[in-house]
Nucleic acid binder design. Structure first.
Lengths: 130, 130
DNA sequence: CCCCTATCAGGAATGATTCTTATTTAAGGA
DNA sequence: TCCTTAAATAAGAATCATTCCTGATAGGGG
């Protein structure tokens, strides 16, 4: 028993997450992979995104505008989230201080997520800052 | 026109968030304040939590187990979220390095949120680490 | 070749959040 | 104090991302 079986769909989802530079939603992944697998169901995408995230092969960026965003890039980095358009951008993090966050007195830390919110450059150019 | 009107319910919600040490959901706030205001509606809680967060009087910790968590403590601190029981704990942050995160090349940063995930001490004592 | 189990599609169900509507209430001026 | 107006509210309906359920299919070990 034990480990999961090989799964074409799951491998495709993981490969897509790794290839892509953005931070997709389940629905986006579904729409994208439907081009290759026309009968891919949305439920399968949700199930596998959850499964991959639980295994640590991808990670969740959190919920933005009501939809969960995922990231196939496991390297240490933070995220900038635009409050106006919902864009998610990668942010380089200084090496310093990161290790100091990695373990606390509260329990066993497995992940550190740093997210910044604000207005992205594109929205700054269009809108008056709300 | 102009600024918002005084609101007994909203003031109560803000006061509760400030008094409490935990990181409540809308539903918890509703249940708690219903003891004082039996006809407080859940919609009112949602609307005012959103409004208070938009004004920066409280802040959102993000969605944990499908429900948004709020925080009345505006002082700079991070959060530790237990993957097992969903507990949210405050985490002291080192002053160093925080300012270096405060502004990036991606736009105008208004907030920095640092969240750590893992297993809290209570769950570590009970469960084998999954 | 036969089970056992994982995967999958399709569709129904769930549940947090938001929206709508009618009603109430606060605040400022007459 | 009374009136006017717009914000605030309650109640319940509506939305919509996510999960759950069911039946079907297929892979791998024995």
């Amino acid at each position: 028993m034990g480990a999961a079986r090989k799964s074409v769909k799951r491998d495709a989802i993981l490969a897509l997450l790794r290839d892509v530079h953005c931070h997709p939603t389940a629905e986006w992944v579904h729409g994208e992979l439907r081009k290759t697998y026309p009968n891919l169901s949305l439920g399968t995408v949700y199930r596998n995104l959850r499964l991959l995230a639980d295994r640590g092969l991808i990670r969740s960026v959190g919920v933005v505008d009501g939809q969960e965003r995922f990231d196939g890039n496991l390297a240490a980095h933070g995220h900038f989230i635009c409050k106006n358009c919902g864009a998610v951008l990668d942010v380089e993090l200084p090496r310093e201080g990161l290790e100091s966050l990695a373990d606390g007195p509260h329990g066993h830390v497995t992940g550190v997520e740093i997210r910044m919110t604000g207005l992205c450059r594109t929205c700054l150019d269009k809108d008056i800052q709300p």
